[in-house]
Design a protein around this nucleic acid. Sequence first.
DNA 1: GATCAACTAGTCAAGTTTGATTACTCGGCC
DNA 2: GGCCGAGTAATCAAACTTGACTAGTTGATC
Lengths: 190, 190
Amino acid sequence: MSATKLLVLGVVHLSGGAHGYQVRSELQSWGVESWAKIKPGSIYHALKKAAADGLLTEHAEPGNSGPERVLYRVTARGRDEIIDLVRDGLRRTHDPAMLNASIAMLPMLTRTDAIAHVNERVARLEAELVVQTEWREHPNPDIPEHVRDQAELWAGHARTELEWAKSLSERLAEGAYTMADDPGSWRTVP
Amino acid sequence: MSATKLLVLGVVHLSGGAHGYQVRSELQSWGVESWAKIKPGSIYHALKKAAADGLLTEHAEPGNSGPERVLYRVTARGRDEIIDLVRDGLRRTHDPAMLNASIAMLPMLTRTDAIAHVNERVARLEAELVVQTEWREHPNPDIPEHVRDQAELWAGHARTELEWAKSLSERLAEGAYTMADDPGSWRTVP
DNA sequence: GATCAACTAGTCAAGTTTGATTACTCGGCC
DNA sequence: GGCCGAGTAATCAAACTTGACTAGTTGATC
């Protein structure tokens, strides 16, 4: 699950440096538990792994009060990795956690880049719905009836997501949110 | 992820005994890869784990042609575990893989039991939508705008699922599918 | 001013999943 | 008749996640 990785890197980036517990509570305040199940252990692991991979730097902070903590900061490579992961999550269907994480980090992309990737998702969802419709018109008689009926649910989810992705694309085109190439973004205000 | 466990146990049950590869191909034929990402390694692990836990028995089959295989069969405890997992998956929201797996194994339950649990899901979804609506009417100004907007998507998914669960409940009440207490089920035809 | 609960911060072993790899059989075809 | 690719069947190490646990700090209350 690279959603964990993206969220952890993203929070460190947005905070301009953070230690484990900060990441943990920031994610909690966003209501992340509701759409991704990320436990403390995974966060600390993801931070260490990312540091070992050169995506984060570790700065030991002497414990002025309480135990000593480690401050993490995103490196240039880490920032590029976040951008790649966001693009990936926007494109990839069938991974709600990754989509949500990507949306949370959407302003890492430039406006045109974001629109292009959201539109790619729209196209993929439309293609999948076509395949799905055929599948339901010519059902495989070997698989049980109730298993075939599940397809209805998943098609409903796909339609919901399609509508939502289209409206996101429109909002972006109309200038919603502060994206990477807008004044006031992380890029112009470092 | 106990969805893997449920699917593996369920397929062995439905086949009246199976070895790893059979489980793997049966799941593939149901199109499971599209809503759960279960890799071969996980299936073999789940089988061994379930056998160690007394949910399956292992019968070594001499390799008449090809390498030797292990035939698994569901024990009485395994069957009870399947039923518990199905109930659990119907109740628990925010876990699409588990819901899908539960639907696939729905006929393990009696009709009234299935209806009761689907209705519980309906009630939970309705409650969550209420909380969600409040959340959007009184948004926390600390969290970024685009993170708040995600809530729209998740509310859409919840509504889709709610509609679907209601219609499933109705279909069940009207006598759809062959459930555990119906003639011709696994229970009456062992 | 003692103590208890809640918060802050994190480690660790055990369990699970993944991706890569192995190894064997079968049918076709050059 | 030898080889190639597809299918069958599974193992294993490495990576990741989880749940349980440790341990210090604050604040509140009696």
